[in-house]
Simulated assay, not measured.
Amino acid sequence: MNDVAAAAGVALKTVSRVVNQEPGVNAATAERVHAAIDLLGYRRNDSARTLRSGRTASIGLVIEDVADPFYSSLSRAVEEVALRHGHLLFTGSSRESPERERELVLAFCARRVDGLIIVPAGQDHGYLEPEFADGIRAVFADRPPGAGCEADAVLCDNVGGARTATAHLVAGGHRRIAFLGDSPTIFTARERLRGHRAALAEAGLPYDEGLVTMGPPDPDRLRADLARLLAAADPPTALVTGNGRFTVDTLRALAALSPAPVRLGAEPYLGGLALVGFDDFEPADLLGITVVAQDPGRMGRTAAELLFGRLSGDEGPARRAEVPTRLIPRGSGELPPA
C-alpha cells in the first residue's frame, strides 16, 4: 500500500479510503490511486483487514441440496445481496441430515463467518447459543429454527398456498382430492397438509386419511401409493403434490401407470386426473401443469437483508417474515372430474 501511495503521490490514508470504498476522496485522486493499483498489481490483504476489524466479510449458507432448483434460486439471491454488501458467500448442502447441518454450521463458524443463513434440517438448534454469544448472527429460511434458538425466520405461506391449491380443485367440481407430500417430520410438509385440510373443511368436505400419502422422496414408493389410490373403490379425481420434486415424480408415476400413450400437454399424461403442484418447476409451463408458485428469490433476498441488518447492529426481537405464493393455472388443475 505504501508503494501505491508513492506512485499515486497521495497519503497512505487516501489509498486506504479508496481501497475500502470510503467517502472523502475526490474523483481525480481516486482515479490516480486506481491507476497505481493496476500498475503495481496491488491486492488488498484481507487477512490483515480481518485482524483489524474482527470481521471476515463472509457469510455461510446451509441449504438442503444445492442442486435443487428451489434452493439454487434462493442461493443466487443471497449471493447477490452478499456481494452488494462486499461479502463472499460459502454454501453447503445438509442433505436433510441434522448431523450434517450442524457439522456445516460449526465448520462455517470455525472459519469465522460474520453470519449464517440456515435452511434447517434438525429441530434442535441449542448448539448455536455459544456461537451467538461469540457474535455470530443467523437467519433461518424456508423453515423456522428449532428448540433452543431465537432467531429471524423467512418462510413461505405454506398453509395459504396449499389451501389455494385444494380450493382451486374444489371449485372445479372435485370432491375426492388426494394429497401427496414429503415426510411429516418436515415443517413445510406439515404446514401444506394443514392448508389442504383447511380448504376441505371450508368446503364442507370430509378429510380422508386414505387419500393422503406422505414420506421421503422415493419414486418407487410414490408409484406404489398412486397405484393403491387409483385402485380404490372410490378413487381420487384430483391430486395436490407437496413440492416440485413430488410433482415430477408423480407425473412419471402416472405415465408409467397409464394404459394410454403419453402425450405432453394432453389429458392422458395425467391419466384423467386433475393436478395442482406446490412449487413451480422448469418444464411445468410446457407440460401444462398448474402450480402454486413460491418465490425463492424473494425469500433469499429477504433473509440476506435481515442478516445484514443484524450485522449492522439491529438488536431488536426475532422477526418472522412470510413470502406469499401465487396460483398459476396452466390446464392440469382445470380438468373436470372424470
Rank of each mutant, 00 (worst) to 15 (best):
N2M: 15
V4N: 04
A8D: 03
A8V: 06
L12D: 13
S16V: 05
P23F: 09
A30R: 11
A30Q: 07
V33E: 02
Y42P: 01
R44K: 13
D46F: 08
R49T: 12
R55C: 05
G60F: 00
V62G: 08
F70R: 11
S75K: 05
A77W: 05
V78H: 03
E80V: 12
H85P: 01
G86W: 00
L88T: 00
E96L: 04
E101S: 12
R111P: 03
V113T: 04
D114N: 03
D114F: 00
L128V: 06
R137S: 14
P144W: 05
G148K: 06
V154F: 11
C156N: 15
G161L: 12
R163Y: 15
T166E: 01
T166H: 00
L169H: 02
H174E: 13
I177G: 03
D182R: 14
P184I: 13
I186M: 15
F187Q: 13
F187V: 11
L193N: 05
L193W: 07
R197F: 04
A198T: 12
L200Y: 02
A203W: 02
G204V: 00
Y207N: 13
L211G: 08
L211D: 07
T213V: 15
P217A: 15
D220F: 11
R223H: 14
L229A: 06
A233S: 12
P235W: 07
P236R: 06
P236I: 07
V240G: 04
A253V: 03
A253E: 07
L254I: 02
L254S: 03
L257R: 09
P259S: 09
P268T: 05
L270T: 14
A274M: 02
A274L: 02
L275P: 01
F278D: 09
E282M: 12
P283Y: 07
A284P: 11
I289H: 09
T290F: 07
V291E: 11
A293C: 08
E322K: 06
V323W: 01
S332M: 06
P337Q: 02
A338M: 12
